[in-house]
């Protein structure tokens, strides 16, 4: 025998009896031990693959369904009013005239206010969290900002109605208009009701801030250490490192985060509906009540009396859908470029 020598051999009786014990398991369908059955097909695996493929297909199908259903429902109004649907500011359900310009303008203005206020704060906070905060601050603060993202829209709205609106009416609006004399400009003019485009913009800024902060932080943390170290090694201060090395590297991701926040602001419904005042009017003054596309739908949908009105609201939904799809598509693309992954 050409058996190589082995230091110790452990011969246990078990090792010999094992095959007999297990024969009924291994070879059970085919009979004799010499013949082993390995034939068969992999039906279950095909079923499984088909199933998860089917689940995955649900995502594009759902999006397509939303697109088609809302588009078809809004088509009669879009066909009847044509391009004027986007530019006319007459919204008269009684006369059957529908133009969504005030709502579209309101949506854009409130979103711009939100981004102008939220972006610097969110970005500053994100830089602080990713580069300067001691670790005992970092965790709880990140948790708090995440928590801000988890507060439901309707709760922001509730707070807006009973805290923000009185504050604006009694203090902020008179202060802006009279004390700062901004009433001389067309933007801060008129009576201080409270419910206004300004209120909607402010509450949106609070709501989108955590989204922008979370994405920016993620993108900043994804900047390789070597980028920071290279700049520090050249003698840059920590702040110069941020502006010179980190932010340029993360730029498109941060812009993506801001646009993602924009997507949220454009489609945000409940809180805005509760504080914007819901009026079809185009006014230059931020003190005036207004409408956004989302709040228009939320407010009038259940009262839509005839088919044209309903179709017009669906058409508003379709325009909103198109805008947010484009905005979100751009944002995702930018965030993916820099390697961030989260929502």
């Amino acid at each position: 025998m050409q058996t190589p020598s082995l230091p110790a051999t452990v011969t246990t009786p078990e090792s010999r009896t094992l095959p007999t014990l297990a024969t009924p398991l291994a070879g059970s369908p085919a009979a004799p031990p010499s013949r082993v059955s390995i034939e068969g097909t992999v039906v279950a695996d095909r079923v499984y693959r088909a199933a998860i493929f089917g689940f995955a297909l649900c995502v594009p199908i759902l999006l397509l369904l939303i697109f088609v259903e809302v588009g078809v429902a809004g088509w009669p109004a879009l066909r009847q009013f044509g391009f004027g649907f986007l530019t006319s500011s007459t919204w008269d359900p009684v006369a059957g005239q529908f133009g969504a310009a005030p709502a579209i303008a309101g949506t854009i203005i409130t979103s711009i206010i939100a981004l102008v206020i939220a972006t610097p704060l969110a970005l500053g906070g994100a830089i602080f969290l990713s580069d300067f905060a001691p670790s005992w601050v970092r965790q709880p603060l990140a948790f708090l900002i995440d928590l801000l993202a988890a507060v439901p829209s309707v709760v922001y709205g509730l707070w807006g109605v009973f805290f923000l609106l009185p504050l604006l009416r009694e203090d902020v609006m008179p202060f802006l208009r009279d004390t700062l004399h901004l009433g001389a400009t067309p933007f801060f003019r008129g009576p201080a009701y409270g419910p206004s485009v300004l209120a909607a913009g402010l509450i949106l800024s609070i709501m989108v801030l955590p989204y922008i902060a979370a994405v920016s932080r993620e993108v900043l943390m994804a900047v390789p250490r070597s980028q920071r170290e290279a700049a520090l090694a050249l003698g840059a201060t920590r702040w110069e490192t941020i502006t010179g090395a980190v932010i340029p590297f993360a730029r498109s991701g941060i812009i993506g985060g801001v646009i993602l926040g924009l997507g949220r602001a454009l489609g945000e419904t409940m809180a805005v509906t509760m504080v914007i005042g819901n009026r079809h009017e185009l006014s230059a003054s931020l003190f005036a009540p207004g409408y956004t596309m989302a709040s228009l739908i939320a407010n009038e949908f259940s009262e839509a009396t005839n088919d044209v009105h309903l179709s017009a609201l669906m058409a508003v939904g379709f325009v909103l859908l198109l805008i947010t799809l484009v905005v979100n598509g751009i944002a995702r693309w930018l965030v993916w470029q820099t390697g961030g992954s989260r929502s």
């Binding site: 995502v59 759902l62 939303i66 489609g267 419904t269 939904g317």
Partner: peptide
């Protein structure tokens, strides 16, 4: 297809909830 699904899932994540509401009503 997987890349498309991933992208569309992210886009769907940003869909305004009111649009989901009117879609569900219509559907």
């Amino acid at each position: 297809l997987a890349n498309l699904v991933r992208f569309l899932a992210d886009v769907l994540n940003g869909l305004p909830s009111i649009v989901m509401g009117i879609f569900a009503w219509e559907f």
